[in-house]
């Protein structure tokens, strides 16, 4: 009978894994990340060159030139700033920048080798208001009214507090396929704990959302994953996707790793 159970187990959960050497060639690439929100704040752009898979030391780029542009609602293009302080691959504006809803924003990054990388001109969307945060049946839920006239892409930043101390943070992403135009739309996660929960509801543009979806997929499969698992997810997993967003190499028209996110947010916190 033991053999029978063994066979059955092999059959229903038939996969097995075995560690092997990776054996691929390193291909260096540029990775850029940064965000602009609907508030007045310093803007920081991170630039790095990827390293070999087995090299844990980041290769920060400190010799690029960065410019931040905007286009007003009347179509006027303006250079917001080209002045950044550079430290360890982080380019921070020397002045606070006002994020105006309705304006378009984008960055240009000129590398030492002359390549010009540019993000898409993307609008700073109207924030979507958080109506409530609930906690029922072991689920913490952000409730909001989804605008029906457009496709929206959301990310919610949940933070759970014990007193004033953050005990856990969770990011959850969703488009509005299941609740487009629904005034009781919600995004939820399993309850983590803590007496207070805060939630930032971020209203993203498509390519930035895609970047976060891909990075989350990588996180799930590479970090929050048991390598010994031989379950169906290995069989029916999707091929890995690079973390590309809204930045293009202007000389080739091809995507570059990373994103410059332009998105609005709305914040609420609630005691339970």
């Amino acid at each position: 009978m033991k053999k029978l159970i063994y066979i059955l187990t092999c059959f229903l959960i038939p996969g097995c894994t075995q560690e092997i050497p990776l054996g691929t060639d390193f291909e260096p690439e540029i990775f850029i990340s940064g965000i602009l929100l609907n508030r007045t704040d310093y803007i920081t752009i991170h630039i790095q060159e990827t390293t070999a898979p087995d090299n844990p030391v980041p290769n920060r780029i400190n010799d690029a030139r960065v410019r931040l542009y905007t286009r007003d609602t009347d179509g006027t293009k303006r250079l917001l700033t080209g002045d950044f302080t550079i430290e360890n691959g982080a380019y921070t504006t020397t002045q606070r920048v006002i994020g105006r809803v309705g304006n378009l924003y984008w960055i240009e990054v000129e590398l030492r080798d002359g390549r010009l990388l540019m993000s898409d001109e993307e609008p700073l969307k109207t924030p979507v208001e958080v109506k409530d945060i609930t906690s029922e049946n072991g689920r913490t839920r952000v409730v909001f009214s989804d605008p029906g006239e457009e496709t929206n892409f959301y990310m919610v930043h949940f933070r759970f507090f014990e007193g004033d101390e953050v005990v856990s943070e969770v990011f959850e992403r969703s488009n509005d396929v299941l609740f487009n135009g629904n005034d009781q739309a919600f995004i939820e996660i399993p309850e983590v704990g803590g007496g207070k929960v805060s939630a930032s509801l971020l209203n993203l543009n498509y390519y930035t959302y895609q970047f976060y979806v891909n990075s989350h997929a990588q996180w799930l499969s590479q970090i929050d994953s048991d390598p010994d698992s031989g379950g169906p997810d290995r069989l029916f997993g999707t091929p890995p996707a690079d973390l590309e967003g809204n930045i293009l190499d202007t000389s080739t028209g091809t995507p570059v790793l990373g994103f410059f996110g332009v998105f609005s947010f709305n914040y609420m916190e609630k005691e339970f």
């Binding site: 092999c10 038939p14 996969g15 097995c16 894994t17 075995q18 560690e19 092997i20 050497p21 990776l22 898979p53 087995d54 844990p56 499969s221 590479q222 970090i223 994953s225 390598p227 031989g230 290995r234 069989l235 997993g237 890995p240």
Partner: peptide, 23 residues
């Protein structure tokens, strides 16, 4: 092998092959 995948463990990349019927 059906597929090959890599994960991070203590920031080290470890690569595995996945077999469907390995016995």
């Amino acid at each position: 092998a059906f597929s090959i995948f890599s994960t991070f463990q203590n920031e080290q990349v470890r690569t595995h092959r996945f077999s469907v019927i390995g016995a």
